[in-house]
Write a protein that binds this DNA or RNA. Structure first.
Length: 463
RNA sequence: GGCGGCGUGGCCGAGCGGUUAGGCAGGGGCCUGCAAAGCCCCGUACUCCGGUUCGAAUCCGGACGCCGCCUCCA
C-alpha cells in the first residue's frame, strides 16, 4: 500500500484513490515571468519522482500542472520591458519547458493555462456572489473567508488566530485581511476579460480550483506543491471548492524548501540561482540525485559542496553502468517493472526499495539500499560471478530509472587523434614500454581524458 | 502574539526504543607495470539538562540555538 504524508491530516496515511488503480494528481505550476530557479527545480523533480514511482507501482497516473500566464508580476514585467503580457508569458514559458526538459522532468498529461479558463472562473465567481460568499469592492471581487467554517485547516490554525497575526494592508476595503481577490478589475492598459461584475482578470487562487476540478473532476486524488503554497494559496483553493459544494483534493502533498545558507531561496529575497545557471556547469542528473538523497519534506541546501558531492556519487553510478554496459533508462518513457524479470538478489532489492518508497516516498533510504547494491554487484563481479553481478546492477539501473535517474555508460566520442594515442598506448603496454605508456596517458590527460585499463584494452572517458 | 518544523560523526543525510543506514571526503590494505575503476578495513556521532525504561539519537519535561508560515513566493 502506498502511503503519503497528507498535510490536511498532518500524518502519513494510506493513499486511497478515487478510482482503484488510477491516480489523479495536480501540481501547482509556475507563474511565467522570470527564469525558473532551484526551488522550481526541486518541486518539479520531487513530484516527477512521485509520478514516476506511482507509475512504476502500477497506477495509471494522470498528471496535471498549470501555467499561470496572467498575473501582476507578468503585467509589471511587460510594463518594464515595454512588451506585452502575452509576450512575456510566452518567453518565460519557453524557458520553463527548456529547463524542465534539461532536468528530465516529464511533461504533464495536461497543461492548463489560466487565460484559457477565464470563462469557468467567471462562472464560479458569479455563483459566489449569488450565494453571498463573495463581495465587490472598488478594485475587485473578494472571497469572504468567514463563510468557510474550517478555514485554516491546512495551516493548522483557526480563523481567528490567523487573523490575529495578519498584517494589515493599507487602503483596504476587504472585510477581513484574510479575504482574497477572486477577480481584479482592470486598470487602463491592462489585459482584461469581460465579466458581469466588472471587466478584469482572475485572481491566482481561483485559477487552480477551476482548472484542477475542471480537468480531474471532483474528489481528485492528490494536490501538490511547494510548502509555501500550503497557506494561503491551497487554503484558498480549498475554501472556494468548499463554498462551491464540491469535493476537492483527497490528499495534500507539500515539499520542503531549497535553502541558501539559513534562508529559504525565494524571489522576494533575491537569493536565487536559476536552473539555467546551475545546468551550465552541472550534470542535471546530479541535481536530481541531490534532491532524492534527502526526503522531499526536508529542506535541502544546494551549495557548490553538496553539488560536488552528488556529482561524485553519480560518477560511481556511471562507473557501474560502464562496467556492466547498463542501458540508459528513464527519460520520457517511464520505467515499469513488467519488462524485467527480477530474481534472487535483484528481487530482494526491489522489495526493499519498494518498502522505502511506498512509505511516504523515502527516497534517501531507497538510495542507500541502491548504493549498497552497487557495492555488492561490484564485489560479485570481482569474484567472477558475472551473471549475478550484472543482474543486480541492472536492477539498480531499473530502480534509479523508476525515480527518473538514468545511469550512463556512454564512452564519450573521441576523435581520431585520441584514438591513435589510445592505440599507441596499448601497443606500448603490450610490449612493456611503461614510460612510453605513461607518457601517452599524461598526453591524454592533458586533453581531458581519463584513462582506464581493462581486459579489453585502454578505455577513455571525459574527465 | 499564534501555528509548525529542525538541531546526527569533517561535510551531506536517513533512522525515531535494543541491530553497520547510505554517500562524499580522509587514513590503511588488496588489485594494477604504475594508475584509473573496483573490493576490504578504519571514525563509534546524535545541542544541553532532567525523567521514564533492563536499555534512548529515538518517548516525556525543561533549557538553548536555528528556520518557516500567519503577506507575493515552488
Amino acid at each position: 500500500m502506498l502511503r503519503l504524508y497528507d498535510t490536511a491530516r498532518g500524518e502519513v496515511c494510506d493513499l486511497v484513490t478515487r478510482d482503484p488503480g488510477r491516480l489523479s494528481m495536480y501540481v501547482c505550476g509556475p507563474t511565467v515571468y522570470d527564469l525558473p530557479h532551484l526551488g522550481h527545480g526541486r518541486y518539479t523533480l520531487v513530484w516527477d519522482v512521485a509520478r514516476r514511482w506511482f507509475t512504476f507501482r502500477g497506477l495509471d497516473v494522470r498528471f496535471v500542472s498549470n501555467i499561470t500566464d496572467i498575473d501582476d508580476n507578468i503585467i509589471n514585467r511587460a510594463l518594464r520591458e515595454g512588451s506585452s503580457e502575452a509576450e512575456v508569458a510566452r518567453r518565460f514559458e519557453d524557458e520553463w519547458w527548456r529547463a524542465m526538459s534539461a532536468i528530465g522532468v516529464a511533461r504533464p498529461d495536461a497543461v492548463p493555462h489560466a487565460t484559457q479558463w477565464v470563462t469557468q472562473m467567471v462562472e464560479l465567481i458569479e455563483s459566489f456572489l449569488r450565494d453571498d460568499v463573495a463581495y465587490v469592492t472598488g478594485d475587485g471581487v473578494y472571497f469572504d473567508t468567514s463563510r468557510v467554517s474550517d478555514y485554516g485547516l491546512l495551516a493548522g490554525q483557526a480563523l481567528d488566530t490567523l487573523r490575529a497575526g495578519a498584517r494589515v494592508e493599507a487602503s483596504e476595503e476587504k472585510r477581513s485581511p484574510l479575504d482574497f481577490a477572486l477577480w481584479k478589475f482592470a486598470k487602463p492598459g491592462e489585459p482584461t476579460w469581460s465579466a458581469p461584475f466588472g471587466d478584469g482578470r482572475p485572481g491566482w487562487h481561483t485559477e487552480c480550483v477551476v482548472m484542477s476540478l475542471g480537468l480531474l473532476g471532483d474528489d481528485f486524488d492528490l494536490h501538490c506543491g511547494g510548502l509555501d503554497l500550503k497557506f494561503p494559496h491551497h487554503e484558498n483553493e480549498r475554501a472556494q471548492a468548499e463554498a462551491a459544494h464540491r469535493n476537492f483534493a483527497r490528499h495534500w502533498g507539500h515539499n520542503g524548501w531549497v535553502m541558501v545558507g539559513d534562508e529559504k531561496m525565494s524571489k522576494s529575497l533575491g537569493n536565487f540561482t536559476s536552473l539555467t545557471d546551475l545546468l551550465s556547469h552541472t550534470d542535471a542528473r546530479a541535481y536530481r540525485l541531490l534532491v532524492v538523497r534527502s526526503h522531499y519534506r526536508s529542506p535541502i541546501e544546494v551549495t557548490p559542496a553538496t553539488i560536488a558531492d552528488a556529482e561524485r556519487a553519480l560518477a560511481r553510478l556511471d562507473a557501474l553502468a560502464r562496467r556492466f554496459a547498463l542501458p540508459q533508462l528513464a527519460g520520457d518513457e517511464f520505467v515499469t517493472p513488467g519488462d524485467y524479470d527480477f530474481t534472487g538478489r535483484g528481487a530482494d532489492l526491489v522489495e526493499r526499495v519498494v518498502a522505502c518508497m511506498d512509505e511516504d516516498l523515502n527516497t534517501p533510504l531507497a538510495v542507500a539500499e541502491l548504493f549498497d547494491a552497487v557495492s555488492v554487484a561490484n564485489s560479485l563481479s570481482d569474484e567472477g560471478n558475472q551473471v549475478e553481478a550484472r543482474a543486480l546492477a541492472l536492477t539498480v539501473a531499473v530502480l534509479f530509472g523508476a525515480m527518473g535517474l538514468s545511469v550512463v555508460a556512454t564512452v564519450h566520442d573521441s576523435d581520431d587523434e585520441v584514438r591513435e594515442l589510445v592505440r599507441d598506448r596499448d601497443v606500448a603496454r603490450s610490449t612493456g614500454q611503461w614510460s612510453e605508456a605513461d607518457r601517452l596517458r599524461d598526453e591524454l590527460a592533458s586533453r581531458g581524458w581519463i584513462v582506464e585499463d581493462s581486459t579489453e584494452g585502454t578505455r577513455v572517458r571525459r574527465s
